[in-house]
Amino acid sequence: MSAPTGFSYRQRGDGTVVIIHRGKAAATLRGARAAKFLGEITAGDEQLVMARWTGAYKFGNERQARQHPRNQGR
């Protein structure tokens, strides 16, 4: 499993945090959620934290999908 990439974030003057994925806004956090996000972003891997907050991360079913007959390339 590779680490997520392509995430960045911007903190606005009003305290709102916008998480950007590949140039597009993926999530907007306000108030307590923004504060919690900023606390987590300083404590861990930024890319992984942003992927988790936006929901853009692997869900665990990739192996099953790869083994499905439709994805075997026949």
Rank of each mutant, 00 (worst) to 15 (best):
A32Q: 06
A25L: 05
R66C: 02
A26G: 12
N61G: 00
G39D: 10
Q67I: 10
R12V: 06
R22M: 10
R33M: 02
T5Q: 14
R30P: 01
G60V: 10
G60P: 08
A3C: 08
R66I: 05
A27W: 07
A25W: 04
I20L: 00
M50P: 03
G6T: 15
G39C: 11
I19A: 01
T16F: 01
Y57S: 07
L29I: 07
T5D: 08
E46K: 11
M50Y: 10
R12S: 09
Q67K: 14
A27I: 02
R74D: 14
A25Q: 10
T28E: 00
T16P: 00
A3G: 07
Q64R: 12
A51N: 05
S2R: 12
I41N: 02
F59D: 15
M1P: 11
S8R: 15
F59A: 10
Y9W: 12
G44P: 06
I20M: 10
K24N: 10
L48T: 13
E62C: 10
T28H: 03
V17E: 01
P69Q: 06
T54P: 02
R74P: 12
A3T: 11
D14P: 06
A51C: 07
W53A: 03
V49W: 01
T54V: 09
R66T: 04
Y57D: 06
S8I: 11
G15Q: 03
Y57M: 02
R12H: 15
E62Q: 15
Q72G: 04
S2V: 12
Y57E: 05
R33N: 03
W53N: 05
I41E: 04
E46M: 07
T5R: 14
A27G: 00
I41W: 07
I20Y: 05
P4C: 13
G6E: 12
T42V: 15
E40G: 14
G13C: 12
M1Y: 11
W53V: 08
E40M: 12
N71W: 10
A35S: 13
A25P: 08
T16Y: 01
A32M: 08
Y9E: 05
G60Y: 05
K36Y: 01
A35G: 05
G15R: 02
A34S: 04
V17K: 05
T28C: 00
Q11L: 14
Q67A: 15
Q72P: 02
T54W: 02
M1H: 14
F37L: 11
L38W: 06
R12G: 09
Q47Y: 13
Q72H: 11
Q67L: 15
R74E: 09
R66G: 00
A3I: 06
D45K: 12
T54N: 00
T16G: 00
R70M: 14
P69I: 00
K24Y: 03
T28Y: 13
